[in-house]
Amino acid sequence: MGAVHEEIDDRLAGFLAAQPVFFVGTAPAGHDGHVNVSPKGLAGSFAVLGPREVAYLDLTGSGAETIAHLRENGRVCLMFCAFTGPPRIIRLHGTGVVVMPGDDDFDDLAGRFTTRPGVRSVIRVAVARIADSCGYAVPRMDLVAERTQLERWAARKGPDGLAAYRRTRNARSIDGLPALDPPSG
């Protein structure tokens, strides 16, 4: 039923790339913080960088929990579910880092993805464990279409509006951890 893989081979990379949505789970280090699970999607926003490394395009959103948690402790799990075809779930456990615009490798990484308005960062994950499970309880669903609201919203805001939004809405996590807080000092 389940298996652990040594690496992301071509077949597994194809499965991951074909999923229209995946989920990112993170948590703060303390026992009293909120666990966060974020759905991610949009074609061309996920990439396999190597046999044990992946990345995804992080777009401006209503919160910045993943960024805050990764900056605090790095722990992350990405989960991909097959909603069509044979049942399957893949979990990628690892350590994530936030690569911001202006960082040395940002342009290189961002170039691997479809260009989209509202890019906030690229999340790069060093994968420590690749686990496959059955997915027998995951329902079959048809993708009707990608949602376009986020991109339209980001385009309307423009670069200055997005920067202002991030300063006010993405500065800290719901638990008060720094996310996109400007560096002090």
Rank of each mutant, 00 (worst) to 15 (best):
N36C: 08
A82S: 15
L180Y: 15
R112G: 05
K40V: 03
R152E: 14
P101G: 07
L42V: 14
G44Q: 04
R140I: 03
A110L: 00
R120I: 01
P87R: 13
R167V: 02
R140F: 03
L59Y: 02
L49T: 04
D107W: 07
E6C: 01
R91D: 02
D103S: 10
T168W: 12
N170Q: 14
L150N: 11
G118T: 04
E7S: 14
P39H: 08
L16Y: 05
L109R: 06
G50H: 01
R88F: 00
V37F: 07
N170L: 11
T114V: 13
V24F: 07
S133N: 13
W153Y: 09
G63T: 13
S62R: 13
D104C: 01
D160H: 14
M79N: 05
L150H: 07
G111S: 02
M1E: 04
A164K: 14
A47T: 11
S133K: 10
I90G: 00
D10K: 11
I174W: 08
L109C: 04
I67T: 15
L49N: 06
S121N: 04
G41K: 10
S173F: 09
C134E: 01
G176N: 07
L92F: 07
S45A: 12
V48H: 03
A145F: 06
R71A: 08
T148V: 14
R120V: 02
L109D: 00
C77E: 14
S184G: 03
I67K: 00
L180C: 12
R147P: 02
M79S: 15
S173V: 02
F106H: 11
G63S: 15
L57W: 07
P20N: 13
A47W: 02
L49Y: 02
P182W: 02
N36A: 12
M1R: 10
A68T: 11
L162N: 02
D32H: 15
A18V: 01
N170R: 08
C134R: 10
V122D: 03
P159R: 10
G85W: 05
D132R: 14
P86K: 13
G74T: 09
A29M: 04
P51S: 05
H69I: 06
A128E: 15
D181F: 03
V138D: 00
A128H: 13
L78G: 06
L92H: 08
I8E: 04
P28C: 12
F22N: 05
V127Y: 04
G61V: 11
G96P: 01
P178F: 10
R147Y: 08
Y136S: 05
L150A: 15
P20R: 12
S173L: 07
P182Q: 08
P139G: 05
F80P: 07
A155L: 05
P178I: 10
V138T: 15
R156C: 01
I67M: 04
M100K: 14
P139N: 08
H69D: 14
R156Q: 13
G85P: 08
A110N: 09
G94A: 06
R120D: 00
R152P: 00
P139H: 09
H93N: 08
P183F: 09
D107F: 06
F23S: 07
E53A: 15
R116L: 15
E53V: 03
T95K: 09
L12S: 05
V98K: 04
G96F: 05
R169L: 03
T114C: 01
